[in-house]
Structure formats: C-alpha cells, structure tokens
Computed example of a mutant assay.
Amino acid sequence: MKSLLLDSPLKIFLLDAIGAIITALILGIVFTTFQEYIGMPREILISLSLIAVVFCIYSFSCFFMLKRNWKPFLKAIAIANLLYCVATTVLIIALSHQLTIVGLLYFMGEIIVIGFLVYFEFLVLNRIKNS
C-alpha cells in the first residue's frame, strides 16, 4: 500500500475520502442511534460526523479535480486530519468518565487509523519535495 500511495499520490485523497465517509456514517448514524453504548454525547457525535463529511467532500473534490499543484491541498487535509486527531484526543480525555469501553476503543482506534493516514500523507509530501 505504501508504494501504491507514493507512486500515485492523488490516490491518497481517495483513501482519505472513503475513510471520512465511513467515519461520518458510523458516527452520524450508527453511534447516534446507539449512543448509550458509546457514551459520547449525541451533539458531539453529530459534530464529528459533519466534520468527516466536509473532509470527504474536500478529498473527493481533490481526487477528481486536481491534476497538478495538489501538494498544498494534500498538506491542508493532512493538517486537518491531525487536528481532528488532537480534538478527538481532547474529547476522550475530557469525557473519559462517561465513555464506555466500546466508545473508548472506537475513538482510540480511529486516532490510530487516521494517524497512519497522516503519516502517509506527510510521507508523500516529503517524497515529492525531496525528488
């Protein structure tokens, strides 16, 4: 997967968009329906879901519309993803008393997955910068 993303850097936008729509659906539909099993307040789940929708639209737009000069757009989504992870971490800490084990495991897993994506996004940016 690493070489695929490095050889076709625009595909990272597609990967980002697919991940964002999955996150939006899980948070906005599944977790709001079963909020008591997660522990994260419904309003926060909806807010995080809406952020994921914006990231999805942005990344799909970049994937389909950009042909060149995509580096600043990739840097923007990498930073946005990183900030999303920071915000999620802050929420986990602030709301740890009400999160269930399922909620805690999900959000920690989400941070790990997005963290790997951010790593690949910066890897692509650095590879292009250094070549």
Rank of each mutant, 00 (worst) to 15 (best):
I44W: 09
L74T: 08
Y37A: 12
I51E: 14
F60C: 04
F60Y: 15
L50G: 01
L66T: 01
I26V: 15
I79P: 04
S49A: 14
P72Y: 04
S59P: 04
W70T: 03
V30F: 15
I79G: 00
S61A: 14
I21Y: 13
A80D: 07
V53Y: 14
S49L: 10
Y58Q: 03
F55M: 12
F63I: 03
I12S: 13
I18C: 10
A20W: 03
F34M: 12
K11Y: 13
L25S: 14
I29H: 07
P41L: 10
A17G: 11
A24C: 07
F13N: 03
F64S: 03
T32I: 15
V30Y: 12
T23F: 14
A17V: 03
L48G: 06
K75Y: 06
L14N: 11
P72N: 07
M65V: 05
G39W: 05
V53L: 14
R42E: 14
L14R: 14
A20Q: 08
L45C: 05
P41V: 08
F73I: 00
L27W: 05
I21C: 09
G39V: 08
N69P: 00
K67N: 14
V54F: 15
S47F: 14
I51K: 06
T32Q: 11
I21P: 01
L15C: 11
M65W: 10
F34G: 01
C62T: 02
F64P: 02
A24D: 07
I18W: 05
Y37L: 12
L48W: 09
A78N: 05
C56V: 04
P41Q: 10
L27K: 08
I12W: 08
I51D: 07
P72A: 01
K71D: 00
L50P: 00
C56F: 15
F55L: 11
I26Y: 12
I44D: 13
W70L: 06
F55W: 07
I12G: 01
K75P: 04
T32G: 07
F63Q: 02
I57H: 09
L48F: 15
A80V: 08
R68E: 08
R68C: 04
G28S: 07
K71Y: 03
L15N: 00
C56R: 00
I26H: 01
T33Y: 08
M65K: 13
A80W: 07
F63D: 05
I46H: 01
L25F: 15
K71L: 11
G39K: 07
I77W: 06
N69I: 00
I46E: 10
S61L: 12
K75W: 09
S49W: 01
S49K: 07
G28Y: 02
I38C: 02
F31V: 02
